[in-house]
Design a protein around this nucleic acid. Structure first.
Lengths: 235, 235
DNA sequence: CCGCATCCGTTTCGATACTG
DNA sequence: CAGTATCGAAACGGATGCGG
């Protein structure tokens, strides 16, 4: 009596609802983590394997195939001198940036002890991004270098949205390019301090006193930085 | 030879990443749709069953239990005169609003023929919300009634965030309360027209000419409404 | 009727092995 | 390096049942 299940039965919510439709595309296990790892630029199959331990290769294969089929990801063939094919987000795929960012901001609220349990290097930019609230960006343009124990990340705020960047005016680079123009601001701190600051559990003054924060450079840029990361105002 | 898998292995990503952690909490199948249906207020178990056809009761049970365990949902016992228990988002659970909203905005971009395949009534507010871009809200406060073929939805923009509302300054009510103060603006249209307008595939003038849009009331409120829903400017 | 718990066939996942 | 093939273990989906 089993209805023949025409093999077309890929599990779908099939509701006339935008949320349900979005989850039909990216709601499966691992899919949004794959998108996360494509968010900062093209990567190879193997890069994804190492950045997503626990994801079996057949599943990664399946997820990528499905993302490609839905037009969110494309396979790009590189010129022969080097590694063959990379996966990259399409413009439509980049529209998932707000989804990933919203998840990151939600998840970061319960992130305890980021210093004791630091993310692998390739997640550094994402961790920083999760602490920012881009809607609080002022009109100014500025740049900064954030020096964390694991390395330095560059941060630049442009005047307008960069078309090729999923993140709008914000641009993160890891590692910070050595030949970049000098940044307006240098911040030396730890992820844990940034988390505590953004939650208002720590004031900049207290962080400095505890040697968890040191800054140098433009005062104005620091002001913007503090706003972007939600630091408590000195009042 | 099966490794004993200490039974503690509930599938978790276990990555030191805010996105992965968020998905550990709400990444399972159905979970975010349950949250979506709690977003506009408390509902009963049975309400969820009817608003989520295809979700088996044991799974709904499981999802709710898990959400409660994580502090995102709470079970509220109602006074005896009526239906017993309802499920409601906790303040922490309401912080998922940006996630659901981001998914809705992503999903709505591929929503074709909303008039031919209209969402069930309880999703009307969500469908409207998916078409808005709250970051484009001006400072003004105003209210409107949107009359769709399936019913009228009230929309009110407050001066400040309402603490008990996940949506910030935006407040949607369905059905539009008959005893509410008169709205600044009346909009009679269809979901399909709103979608086309927000995608810039239709101008307000063309929509009026085709009898897909009729408005009355405050010009200023209409201006705000058009901005909020991303209508193309007459220019 | 409401709020689930139980049972069971089907689908998906996860680990490992293997191939161009 | 970039995947495919295989197979046991979970998770899911549907039906049914049962106490309050």
């Amino acid at each position: 009596m089993t209805p023949p299940t025409t093999a077309a039965t890929r599990r779908t919510y099939g509701q006339a609802c935008p949320v349900a439709h979005a989850l039909d595309l990216v709601g499966e296990r691992w899919t949004l983590l794959v998108v996360r790892d494509l968010m900062f630029g093209p990567v190879r199959f193997t890069d994804l394997r190492t950045s997503l331990p626990g994801l079996a290769p057949n599943l990664l294969s399946d997820r990528l195939r499905r993302l490609v089929a839905h037009g969110l990801v494309e396979q790009v063939e590189l010129p022969p001198p080097a590694a063959r094919t990379v996966y990259a987000l399409t413009p439509r795929g980049r529209e998932l940036a707000p989804v990933v960012h919203a998840l990151a901001r939600f998840g970061v609220a319960e992130w305890d002890d980021p210093d004791g349990d630091p993310p692998p290097r390739h997640l550094l930019r994402g961790a920083l991004l999760a602490l920012t609230a881009p809607e609080r960006l002022g009109a100014a343009t500025w740049s900064a270098v954030v020096e964390l124990p694991d390395g330095a990340v560059g941060l630049a705020v442009g005047a307008r949205e960069a078309a090729d960047d999923p993140l709008g005016r914000l641009r993160l680079s890891d590692p910070h390019p050595a030949d970049a123009p000098p940044a307006d601001l240098h911040v030396r701190t730890t992820l844990g301090a940034l988390v505590d600051l953004s939650r208002g559990r720590l004031t900049p003054a207290a962080a400095r006193a505890a040697d968890r924060l040191a800054t140098s450079g433009s005062e104005r840029a620091l002001d913007q930085f503090a706003r972007l990361f939600g630091w408590p105002r000195p009042a």
